[in-house]
Amino acid sequence: MNIFRLAGDMTHLASVLVLLLKIHTIKSCAGVSLRTQELYAIVFATRYLDIFTSFVSVYNTFMKLVFLGSSFSIVWYMRYHKAVHRTYDREQDTFRHWFLVLPCLVLALLIHEKFTFLEVLWTFSLYLEAVAILPQLVLLQRTRNIDNLTGQYIFLLGGYRGLYILNWIYRYFTEPHFVHWITWIAGLVQTLLYADFFYYYFLRFIGGRGVE
């Protein structure tokens, strides 16, 4: 564990807590894409299949349970909770996210480190996570302005993988044979997809107005 990875995990944890806070306290999911949340639930479900077979550390297992629990409960809230469900703008959140799942699965079957069930699904989760934010970014453009909590959620979610990139650079120089091209490229693509969001998000800080 290094400071970059810890900062990345804490940033990721903060992003799900901000979203849960928004949905649970103000009972609203306005501006939040259910499709992105569903993709993230699939990402965690396919990435953490090893939670019962391989034990890394208490921290690792605890964080996996937190990410699994929070992503599925957010989907539950947005789909079935009577008050929250009403604030979900279904008409705007129309990105065909299932069209993202199949190509990622095919790509994972073609490009992976080992051809085993767990490894292919793990690789699938990497590819899917890289594009999982797309429905949310499209929704953001459609709804124009967004509230602070949603903006902070996206900012933290985008930032965590960027911190992971620093972690991979650090591990590459400190651990022999630490080379995982698939993880690195997927993580880079994921972070680059946030580039324009970061641009407008920082403009907000400079201009002191809502995220346009």
Partner: peptide
């Protein structure tokens, strides 16, 4: 016995 053989990152 939980054998560590997978990934150590989240």
């Amino acid at each position: 016995i939980w054998v560590y053989e997978f990934k150590d990152e989240l």
